[in-house]
Simulated scan of single mutants.
Amino acid sequence: MDVREFQEKLKKMQELAKEQGGSLRAEQIREEFSGSDLNSSQLVNVLKYLTGQGILIEGIETETEGSDAQEEVRRVPLTQEEEAYLKEYLESLPGEEDFPESGRLFEELRSGSADAVQSLAACYMRAAARLAVEMNTEDIFIGDLIQEANVSLVQALGAAGEILRSEEWLLEQIREGIRKACKEQSQRKFEDDSLVARVEKLESAVRELSEDEEDGESAFSVGELAVILDMDVEEIRDTLRLTGDDK
């Protein structure tokens, strides 16, 4: 299955999920990708990508290899490196007992107090880190996720307005920021993986087509490769630029 067909199938699945209120059935995905050359690992990556886009996969628990895909997207354990980073980061933060009662700070926030914004931001940085750990995924380093959580924290406080806000509201704003960051990173990783797959496909095909050439050079033009590999000419040119073989 070529890249364009694969992308069209993914788009079709996303559109179907939208029609179905943000969910898909596992059998719908199997049916759409049946007959493709995807192996089980690649199919799990498809499931992870779709769940990373906020799509609920119904019946995924019945899948042998895909049963953990939805959970993996939501939460994975920290690596040793991340554990060490988290410990050092938390030790650098002031203790929660060092801040005034948050209820009063939210009252002052409603009146537009800049001091309240700063105090609440400092007060909830530890909570933001805990949420980042709870929502950690394998696609983003925990330090970066904590940073995204802190950005969401500050942005939420800055846009709080004159409504009396609460801790529950603030924590949900942080969660939403973390979800968005995870979704965007998942999208970028998926696109990067697809790009790597295109490069590998092209390099492999060129090697195979060049095996019979005495000088090891391909006798095929870019246009001919496009026909043979069922790829757009521009897609091949872009891939060759990445490999440095566009001479």
Rank of each mutant, 00 (worst) to 15 (best):
R175T: 02
E217K: 11
V46N: 10
A205V: 03
T79V: 12
S210M: 00
L242H: 11
L109V: 11
K11I: 03
A226W: 02
Q187M: 11
L153V: 07
D212Y: 05
G103S: 06
D192R: 02
D212S: 05
S204Q: 10
D144T: 14
F99A: 00
M125V: 14
E82T: 10
T51M: 01
I142Y: 06
F6H: 12
V199E: 12
V76A: 08
T51S: 15
Q173S: 15
A160W: 07
E167I: 11
E168R: 08
S119Q: 15
E203L: 08
A84D: 15
T62K: 14
G177N: 01
A181T: 03
R237W: 05
G103Y: 09
S210C: 03
K18C: 04
A226Q: 01
S218K: 03
I174W: 04
G143K: 05
S34Q: 10
E31A: 13
L153M: 10
K201V: 01
E162S: 14
D230L: 04
L10W: 06
E101P: 05
R30N: 15
L105E: 00
V73M: 14
Q7K: 13
K12L: 05
S92A: 14
L105S: 05
E8Q: 11
V76Y: 08
V227A: 04
S218Q: 02
A156D: 06
F141W: 13
V199T: 05
R75P: 00
V233A: 08
L170R: 00
E83F: 05
S92H: 14
C182G: 05
I236F: 02
L229R: 02
A26I: 15
L195Q: 14
A149T: 10
L145Y: 11
E15I: 03
R165N: 03
E172K: 12
E176Q: 12
F106I: 12
F190L: 01
R25Q: 13
P100K: 12
D68A: 15
Q7Y: 03
V46R: 07
